[in-house]
Each structure stands twice: as C-alpha cells, then as structure tokens.
Design a protein around this nucleic acid. Structure first.
Lengths: 210, 210
DNA sequence: CCTACCGATCGGTAGG
DNA sequence: CCTACCGATCGGTAGG
C-alpha cells in the first residue's frame, strides 16, 4: 500500500504509549462514573494496572489527566462531527439523521453526559473555550448553509440554529435519562424522533385557542 | 387579623430553627458552587457561623444535608409550579409566559442548574423519584389540558409534551451558559423567546428543500 | 514504573 | 453548640 503524506504510518505504540492509553481509558471510566473530585488517582491507577505513583510519568497531575480525558471524550467532540457528516437530500433529512446518530451515540454510553456536567460544575467550564475553538468553525460553516435552506423564526441566526439544534438533542438525552431515573415508564417518553418533529414543525399547527 | 385554620400563625423561629436555616442556606451555596464532594462540612459550618461539630445537631450527615437542600432548591421544584401558574388565554400564551418565568428564575441564579447536575452525577439521581412523585401529578393534569388544545405531532403524549417543554427550557438555560463560558458573543445567542418560537412553530415553515 | 511515605484535609464523634 | 480529636483517604513526591 502506498503511503500518503497526509496519513503517515504511525510508529507502533511503545509500552509507554500503551500505559498512557490504559490510564486515559481508566480515567474516563472513573470521571464519568464518579465525577472529578470523587474519582481517586488510586482507582485510576488500579484500572490501568499500575501503582498510583506511576501516573505521574504520564500526566502532571489529576487536572492534567482530566483535561486529556475531556479533550478526547467530551460530548461536543462527538456531536459536531456527526452533524457535519449526516447524509440527506433536504435540510429536514440531514437534521433528522444527524440527531438520530448523535442521540444514539450519547445514549450508548449513558454516563457520557456526566463528562459535560463534571466539567461545568467541578472545573467551571475552563476547557470549553478550547473545545469550541477547535470544533466551532466547521460546524458554523455547515449550519450557515442549513440556515439559508430553512425558514427559521426571525432573530434566529445561524449560530442560534446550531445552539438550538444541539440544545434539542441534549435535551432529548438528558430528559430521558432523568425521567427514567425518576421512575417514569419508558413507553411514555418522547425520543429523538418526537423531539425533532417538534424542532422542525412545532407543537402548534393551526390550533391556537385554548 | 383573623387567623385562618388553613394558615395557622407559625411559632416564632427558635434559635435552633434559625441555625438550621442558616445551615441550609450555607450548604446550598457550597453545593451549588462546588458540587457535593468538593463542598466541605467545615466551609458550610463557617458559612452558617458555627463550628463543624454543630452541624450534627441538625443533620445526620453530609448526605442528609444535601438531601434537604435538594428538596428545597432543586430546579424541578421551581419549574413545575411556574408552569401551572402561568397566565394566558391561549396555549401559546401560557407556554410562552411559563417559559419566560422559568428561564428568568433559572438564570437569576446562574449556578442553580448545578444542583440538578450534582444530584445526577454525584448521587446517581436518588432524590429524583421522590421529587417527581411530589411534583408530577399536578403538572401532568395541567399539561393534559394543554395537550388537547395543541396539535402535537403524532406520538407525543401529554407526558411527552411536559418532557419536551421542560427539556426546551432547560436547553435554553444550559446552552446559553456553556456558550457564554466558551466565549461566544452574547448578542448571537438564542434566548428563551427564540427557543419557544421553535418549540411552538418549528424551524421549517414551508421550505423543505436544500 | 514501584515502594514507601509525606502533609493536608476530609466526615464524623466524644464529652462536656 | 464548642473543643478536641479520631481514623481514613486524598493528591502528590523522593528515591531508586
């Protein structure tokens, strides 16, 4: 196989590389299950199969490790690429497909949203600026095209379209999770299709009186 | 003033009552600022003007104190009553008024949503069942009436209408906060009016091609 | 990357 | 409700 200059064959992972990856994986599990403060370096080391002191050969400290996990796994890093890659011939099709793919991914790992929350509560959202600088430009270019193709209410900018779409998908996953936790019957819960029906067409279709 | 049997004049608060309330207030501040695990009993005692040991005259432990704060301040306890009390002559008016009042209250204390998140991450949502049992019946009765007056997409139950409405309001407050934290210009952000425009009427109004 | 350990801080208790 | 203190656990380091 010819080697493209854009995709050089990476060096085979060294033992150090593999340990580092094992630490990232173990840290992800701990942070997502317990949040930042309740996750212990000892449990992370255990999960990676090393002793606690060994962590500091790979990461400067707990904050550094958390930052690495956030950059690798934050929900926004999964949401934006899925939005851009979604197939479809109309705006409606593309948004529905994107929403389904994103919701499926966020629900596959039911604790994934915890990374978002832990970052905002326990780290005051200090990684969000870096994340959005990386992810926003392409998403914004994409959604500007969509904005022109839809009939958004006055005052909704392309940026607002992105915000409301992401917000709607997050609202779907979040409300389903907390209502399930609260003991609501799964059958009665609205899913991503119902949320997108409302997002695209609204709950009023002619009727306005009460 | 005559004393109604439904509203007996409460006993004047004792010193113990006042200390307990000071503890609840201080605990609310700490939990909302730092989350459950990072809030220390010492800081809470300081905030209430007593020493750490004194807390245990009023609460069995940190969990018990957190549970009391959750029951008193959880966002859901503010959302549901506002929804039921919102004025308006049409479904649209009532939903818009409710959404504005709720969003204003959630944004007045920008950290209030943290109580929701801390409870889900750090306590696995164990108080949600009790909260929703208390709050759900009246909200559901109210929204059933609204459901009949709107033209919701097929598959949206009254319960789903409640879920999507609450989800939309939460999405508004949450996305505004994280985008502001990420450095987005406030002027470009969609607010509760824009989210409700979409919730009521959708982003497509005839246009469907791309 | 391990062993052994540090100081700091935690939630909670005993006794008054 | 305070003083004084407990055992446990934490993040992190020194030295090899």
């Amino acid at each position: 196989m010819a080697q493209s200059p854009d995709h050089p064959i990476p060096d085979p992972p060294t033992k150090g590389d593999r340990t580092r990856q094992a630490l990232l994986d173990a840290a992800y599990q701990q942070f997502v299950q317990r949040g930042f403060h309740a996750a212990s370096m000892r449990a992370i080391a255990d999960g990676a199969g090393i002793t606690p002191g060994g962590i500091y050969n790979h990461f400067a400290g707990k904050d550094d490790l958390f930052a690495a996990v956030v950059l690798a796994h934050h929900p926004l890093t999964r949401i934006f690429p899925q939005l851009i890659a979604a197939p479809g011939h109309t705006a409606e099709e593309r948004l529905r497909n994107a929403a389904q793919a994103i919701a499926a991914e966020l629900e596959a790992d039911e604790k994934l949203l915890n990374l978002f929350f832990a970052e905002m509560i326990e780290c005051q959202g200090k990684h969000l600026a870096l994340l959005s600088e990386t992810l926003m430009p392409k998403a914004l270019a994409f959604v500007t095209e969509l904005h022109a193709a839809t009939d958004t209410p006055p005052g909704i900018t392309p940026f607002g379209l992105l915000q409301t779409f992401v917000g709607t998908v997050l609202a779907t996953v979040f409300t389903r999770r907390f209502l399930a936790t609260a003991g609501a019957p799964a059958i009665a819960l609205a899913g991503i299709d119902e949320f997108m029906d409302i997002y695209l067409h609204g709950i009023l279709r002619g009727k306005t009186d009460l």
